[in-house]
Simulated scan of single mutants.
Amino acid sequence: MGKLDGKIAIVTGATSGIGRRTVEIFVQEGAKVVATGRREALGRTLEQSLGKDRCLFVTADATLESDVKAVIDACLAKWGRLDCLFNNAGGPAPVGGIETVPVEGFDAAMATLVRSVMLGMKHAAPVMMRQGSGSIINNGSVAGRRAGYSTSMIYGAAKAAVNHLTVCAAMQLGEKNVRVNSISPGGIATGIFAKALGLAPDKADAYAEAMKASMAKNQPIPRAGVPDDIAQAAVFLASDDSTFINGHDLVVDGGLVGGRMWTPHQEGVKAMRQAFGVDEP
Rank of each mutant, 00 (worst) to 15 (best):
G2D: 06
D5F: 14
G6W: 11
I8C: 06
T12S: 11
A14P: 05
T15P: 05
T15F: 02
G17E: 05
G17P: 06
R20V: 08
V23N: 03
Q28S: 12
A35H: 04
T36I: 09
G37C: 04
R39L: 04
A41E: 13
L42F: 10
R44N: 05
E47H: 05
E47L: 00
L50M: 04
L50V: 06
L50R: 02
L50F: 01
D53A: 08
R54A: 13
L56Y: 05
L56S: 01
L56W: 04
F57I: 05
F57S: 02
A60G: 03
A60P: 06
D67L: 05
D67R: 02
D67T: 07
A70K: 10
C75T: 15
A77E: 14
R81C: 10
R81S: 13
L82N: 05
L82K: 01
D83C: 10
D83V: 09
D83W: 07
C84T: 15
A89C: 06
V95H: 07
G97M: 14
E99R: 04
V101P: 02
V101E: 03
V101G: 02
V103M: 12
V103I: 13
V103R: 13
E104C: 06
G105V: 01
A108K: 09
A109R: 00
M110G: 09
T112F: 03
L113E: 04
V114I: 12
V117Q: 08
M121V: 14
H123K: 09
A125D: 08
A125M: 13
P126M: 06
R130T: 12
S133K: 15
S133W: 13
S135M: 08
I137L: 06
N139K: 11
R146G: 05
T151R: 15
I154K: 01
Y155R: 01
G156C: 00
A157I: 09
A158W: 01
A158H: 00
T166Y: 04
G174P: 08
E175M: 15
K176V: 10
K176L: 11
K176F: 13
K176I: 09
V178M: 07
R179P: 08
R179Q: 11
V180E: 04
V180M: 07
G186T: 08
I188K: 01
I192Q: 00
I192D: 02
I192R: 00
A194K: 01
K195G: 11
A196V: 10
A196I: 14
A196N: 14
D202I: 13
D202P: 10
K203D: 13
A204D: 04
A206C: 09
A206R: 13
S214N: 13
M215D: 06
A216Q: 08
A216M: 08
K217E: 10
N218V: 14
P222V: 14
G225H: 03
A231K: 00
A233W: 01
F236W: 11
A238F: 05
T243V: 14
T243R: 15
F244G: 10
F244C: 11
I245L: 15
N246W: 12
G247M: 06
G247K: 06
H248M: 14
L250D: 00
G255M: 07
L256S: 04
V257A: 02
V257Q: 03
G258I: 09
G258T: 12
G258C: 14
R260N: 14
M261Y: 09
M261R: 15
V269F: 12
V269E: 15
A271W: 12
A275C: 11
G277H: 12
V278Y: 11
